[in-house]
């Protein structure tokens, strides 16, 4: 998902639904059949590419709650023995969907694969499996030379609630990884959010607004910090700033902070006619 700019609808969802704008995944579809883990395990463990692919697909469809989780060790073991590239990507993606931290170490290993596609799959896997190993690995992936890999790692670090990654994310943001802005907004607290404020005037507003949205949507962030962001956006004196504040105001929950609401109203009023 392109998180550089969320429309009003998505913004409302973000504000009402909490920090993550990501849809839930991994759940079993209603009425899914119970997996024959023995049969699937044998297929995945075997040497026939077609059967391995089919086994992975069926596991993925079943999801973590549909019995797929039981196959995590089998898939991990199969990757450890080596797989063709396409099957490897499929296996990593499947592990990501199964959201089992037990898969983090094998996914971390594959962050070293020479094919960027495989590394992308490994990063997505780590984003799914979560846990401290995943956070450590994703922080490492921020240094990957491939733009897709480090951008995706930045995104996942936000969703994995890894505030220890903020210093690295700030460096990444300064090096043009726009996805880092949103993640910093999802992770920062108090003065830690100054990294976004400090860059508001120098980075593209569309990039920085993705981070500010996250800050404004989080209940854990205090009113003072949110008001500082409102004031900083107001200071930009641009039409885009006004539109952004209006979107925030529209999506502001009825039971939300009155002080922030007032700050938004005043800022919007002061920006009337801004170009």
């Amino acid at each position: 998902m392109d998180k550089r700019f969320l429309g009003a609808g998505a913004l409302a969802l973000a504000l009402l639904g909490g920090a993550s704008a990501y849809a839930q995944k991994g759940g079993a579809p209603a009425g899914a059949m119970k997996l024959d883990t023995k049969e699937l395990g044998a297929a995945i463990s075997g040497n026939e590419p077609a059967k391995i692919a089919d086994g992975l697909d069926r596991t993925r469809v079943a999801g973590k709650d549909g019995g797929g989780k039981a196959l995590v060790p089998v898939i991990v073991s199969r990757i450890q023995r080596g797989l063709p590239k396409e099957l490897l990507k499929k296996a990593l993606e499947t592990l990501g969907d199964l959201e089992d931290p037990a898969a983090a170490e094998i996914a971390e290993q594959y962050l070293a694969h020479r094919e960027a596609d495989v590394r992308v799959a490994a990063v997505n896997c780590l984003g799914g499996v979560k846990g401290p190993v995943a956070v450590r690995a994703l922080r490492g992936a921020l240094g990957d030379l491939d733009a897709r890999v480090h951008a995706l790692a930045a995104t996942h670090l936000g969703t994995l609630k890894a505030p220890e990654a903020i210093p690295d994310l700030v460096i990444a943001l300064d090096k043009g990884v726009n996805e880092a802005a949103s993640s910093i907004g999802m992770l920062c607290e108090g003065k830690g959010c100054d990294a976004l404020l400090d860059r508001l005037a120098t980075k593209p507003f569309d990039v920085m607004s993705s981070g500010i949205q996250q800050v404004m949507a989080r209940a854990a962030v205090g009113d003072d910090v949110k008001k500082k962001f409102v004031a900083a956006v107001q200071k930009l004196q641009t039409r885009k700033a006004r539109e952004f504040l209006q979107e925030l105001r529209t999506a502001w929950p009825k039971g939300g902070s009155k002080a922030v609401e007032t700050a938004l109203d005043e800022a919007i009023k002061s920006l009337e006619g801004a170009k």
Binding site: Q80, R81, G82, L83, P84, K85, L87, L88, Q109, Y110, A112, H113, R114, E115, V118
Partner: peptide
């Protein structure tokens, strides 16, 4: 062995690997 495992299925067309 880790290197061999990692690339035994991903080396096609890349003689260096």
């Amino acid at each position: 062995k880790r290197f061999i495992v990692m690339y035994r299925g991903s080396a096609q067309g890349t003689p260096a690997i």
